[in-house]
């Protein structure tokens, strides 16, 4: 399978502050690739370098076989971007927004109009196409931005937190739509804070923090590698020391968080064994998920926004 994006020792400094400090990545054609990381991890800087609004300090970045250093115009003609800020033109209606955007791509007028109307219909915006974008709901605006990103039939899509701030129905609808795009074998790069979104959509996931890629793998691979199969959330309250020494003795992996312990199990048998030791404590058994991986790798603490 051919490589759609490759980053080689990619670095980016802003006034001597390193935002990206040596990223190596390869994204295959037709793959849905997730980039996870806490705020300030360098996700947005990485995406900005891909779509040409940040220039790498050093290293190489190739998109669709083209060099971001000197072929950005060609790259931009072939990728679609859903940025974090909608950036819709508030002086115009939904349909006008798409038509204007098409002119920036030098699309032929009639085919642009047909494509815009098709996408508005597909995004369930046909009834609202003449409304000013300011009057659209958050979900509608996002759908319009997704329509905008697809207008010129890009080979690759870049989605920067595409469902942040949306209600569950809107999010579900958008996920379903992305699934359809995946069937069409479009290469998709997505950043998100919703682990469920990453698990659902992404073929492979990179966990990024402090400007480096900590690990790359499929969702199940990462879960198995870092957590195991199941997690027990144990409410320990003031008996934390008792419980931590006990679990350490059993040689089981765990994480402390406030008055809770998250205990990770490689197998169901191991979990079954452990349960025999629990008396007089509240606990919850659940399947290990990407959220656990993320918290374990990136840490449990709230950080100041970088």
């Amino acid at each position: 399978m051919s490589i759609t994006l490759s980053a080689v020792n990619l670095k980016k400094n802003y006034n001597d502050v390193a935002a990206v400090r040596g990223i190596n990545l390869e994204i295959k054609q037709g793959e849905c690739f997730g980039i996870l990381g806490p705020n300030g991890a360098g996700k947005s800087t990485l995406l900005k370098m891909i779509y040409g609004q940040a220039i790498p300090t050093s290293g190489d970045l190739f998109v669709l076989g083209l060099n971001t250093r000197d072929q950005m115009t060609e790259i931009k003609a072939r990728i679609g971007v859903v940025p974090q800020d909608d950036g819709l033109d508030t002086d115009f209606s939904a349909l006008e927004n798409l038509k204007l955007f098409a002119t920036y791509f030098n699309m032929e007028k009639n085919s642009a109009e047909a494509r815009a109307e098709h996408l508005l219909h597909e995004m369930k915006l046909a009834d609202h196409q003449h409304m000013h974008v300011e009057a659209l709901s958050g979900g509608m605006k996002r759908r319009l931005v997704i329509a905008r990103s697809l207008l010129h039939e890009p080979q690759m899509l870049i989605l920067d937190e595409p469902t942040t701030g949306l209600d569950p129905q809107a999010r579900l609808w958008i996920w379903n739509y992305f699934e359809k795009l995946k069937v069409q074998k479009k290469t998709i790069i997505i950043t998100t804070h919703y682990m469920e979104e990453a698990e659902k959509l992404c073929d492979r996931i990179a966990i990024v923090d402090q400007g480096v890629v900590l690990d790359v793998g499929t969702g199940p691979e990462l879960i198995k590698k870092y957590i195991g199969t199941e997690v027990i959330e144990l409410e320990v309250e003031d008996q934390k020391n008792y419980w931590t020494s006990k679990i350490k003795n059993l040689d089981i992996e765990f994480q402390e968080f406030e008055s809770k312990l998250f205990v990770f199990f490689a197998s169901i048998d191991q979990r079954q064994n452990f349960l025999q030791h629990i008396q007089n404590a509240h606990y919850l058994i659940r399947a290990a998920n990407l959220n656990d991986v993320f918290l374990k790798v990136a840490g449990y603490q709230i950080r100041g926004e970088a």
Partner: peptide, 12 residues
């Protein structure tokens, strides 16, 4: 409005 940032997403 981020209009310029949006325009920059195109070949402009």
């Amino acid at each position: 409005q981020k209009t310029f940032q949006t325009m920059l997403l195109t070949p402009l």
